[in-house]
């Protein structure tokens, strides 16, 4: 139900992103999705990729401050309102989203997110039979 995500602390200046991407290229890691949350000074780069555990080790070896975290990943239909329906379920259960991002994969919507109540989130996903997606499926 959860997948691995890399989070990397960056300075919000020119050239910091490419350094990280270069290391991943050299390690032959394929990106599935990336997003950056930023303030005026910092950014946190979040990456879903192939072989996240190896990617994390490679980055650490290169001296990059990287955190490996578990995030939820769901598949939803590529229809208007599909995301709203899912988020509605969590909202009703009193779960707060810390962050969320989406991307399309093989014409399916993928929802990646973190919440303030991981156990309750897992239960809500199970109870409602929401379709999850595994790391393997993401990188096929």
């Amino acid at each position: 139900m959860t997948i691995h995500q890399l989070s990397i602390f960056l300075e919000n200046t020119t050239g910091t992103l490419i350094q990280v991407l270069r290391h991943l290229k050299e390690a032959k890691v394929q990106l599935v999705s990336t997003t950056i949350a930023d303030t005026a000074e910092y950014g946190i780069l979040r990456i879903i990729c192939s072989e996240p555990l190896r990617a994390c080790e490679e980055l650490k070896k290169a001296g990059v401050a990287v955190a490996l975290s578990d995030v939820f990943a769901l598949q939803i239909d590529n229809n208007p309102g599909a995301a709203a329906d899912v988020v509605e379920l969590f909202s009703r259960a009193g779960i707060g989203l810390t962050y969320i991002y989406t991307f399309l994969l093989r014409n399916k919507g993928i929802l990646v997110f973190r919440t303030d109540k991981p156990e309750l989130t897992a239960k809500t996903i199970e109870d409602n039979h929401l379709p999850t997606i595994s790391e393997e499926e993401l990188t096929v």
């Binding site: 602390f9 949350a37 303030t39 910092y42 946190i44 979040r46």
Partner: peptide, 15 residues
């Protein structure tokens, strides 16, 4: 500098 073993997915922690 942040410590070598410090990294985070959480902005709130940084701020």
């Amino acid at each position: 500098e942040l410590a070598a073993d410090f990294s985070t997915d959480d902005f709130k922690a940084l701020l």
